[in-house]
């Protein structure tokens, strides 16, 4: 009995040593955007299974959380669905961290409403007015007489910031519900016939019970859908955006290998399978500047 116990303790101790040494060697910490989390997790799984022995941990929490972690040197890669602000870059360099940006996919940020809603398209201007709280009834954009319920993200979300800066150019209505992630917004819109919300396109490709609105840049412009990859890539869809990963300095070793995998043909195929779109030429050039 005693022998068994000693053996067990020995086993546990050696296990701890093994895992901790593995952690020290090739552990990549990725943190940030909830829009990117499913995609990057999938990429990491395939990469670990098929290409490398390094261990990759992917967690969410929002772009703001990821960027804050990178600034405080608590992760290797920060997922961000928005650009880092100048203030954040400055604070990072105060901490001795030189941030570099890598674009790994394109997202058509999708505006969605309930499947029973008759409204199927809006202009950017109308969407801005709705989310600023200036339009509060669906009839004002040609729909039924029904008050609008707003669903958005919480302020730690990169999508929250991107949508505000690119579409609203002002503050969100104080009455907007602040949901805890893309999936929660999708669930809420499915149940709420008066709802409108915004999520990454990867979350709506398969979803049923809701409309993915076509959006036009101007009142008499062309309405384009985020589900159409060409429109997102060419910018015909007005609220498309690059999805970024920020790293400290020029990526080396395991981090570089993983980034290279994400940008390879296999990686970009997975980007498409997850509902997002491969990166266009201009961003390939940006990525090549950091050696990828």
């Amino acid at each position: 009995m005693k022998k068994i116990r000693i053996g067990l303790i020995g086993l546990i101790i050696s296990l701890i040593f093994m895992t901790s040494s593995a952690l020290a060697e090739d552990m990549i910490q990725i943190k940030g955007s909830d829009t990117l989390i499913n995609l990057v997790q999938r990429l990491a799984e395939v990469y670990m299974d098929e290409y490398s022995a390094s261990y990759i941990a992917v967690t969410g929490g929002g772009s703001g959380t990821g960027v804050a972690a990178l600034i405080n040197n608590k992760c290797d890669i920060a997922n961000a669905s928005r650009l880092m602000k100048a203030k954040e870059v400055a604070r990072a360099s105060d901490n001795g961290i030189q941030v570099n940006r890598v674009v790994i996919a394109m997202d058509g940020l999708s505006v969605i409403n309930n499947g029973n809603n008759t409204i199927r398209q809006l202009t950017v201007d109308q969407i801005g007015k709705i989310f600023r709280g200036e339009i509060t009834n669906w009839k004002d954009v040609g729909g039924r007489d029904m008050s609008i319920t707003l669903y958005g993200r919480q302020s730690n979300s990169g999508t929250f910031v991107f949508f505000r800066d690119a579409v609203l150019k002002g503050d969100y209505s104080q009455k907007m519900n602040r949901m805890n992630g893309n999936a929660q917004i999708v669930e809420a819109i499915k149940q709420d016939s008066s709802g409108i919300g915004y999520v990454g396109v990867g979350y709506v490709k398969m979803a049923t019970g809701l409309n993915v609105l076509k959006v036009a840049a101007r009142a008499n412009g062309v309405y384009a859908s985020p589900l159409n990859g060409d429109d997102v890539k060419t910018g015909n869809y007005p609220i498309s955006r690059p999805l970024n990963q920020y790293v400290n300095g020029t990526p080396k070793g395991a981090v570089r290998d993983f980034l290279a995998f994400e940008l390879s043909a296999a990686g970009q195929n997975m980007v498409e399978a997850e509902g997002f779109f491969p990166i266009p030429k201009e961003y390939e050039e940006l990525n090549s500047k950091v050696g990828l």
Binding site: G61, G62, G64, T65, V67, A68, I71, N72, K87, E88, R91, Q154, S155, N156, R178
Partner: peptide, 9 residues
């Protein structure tokens, strides 16, 4: 809870 995760020190 919402804001502490992203706030800069």
């Amino acid at each position: 809870a919402i804001e502490l995760g992203e706030v800069a020190y």
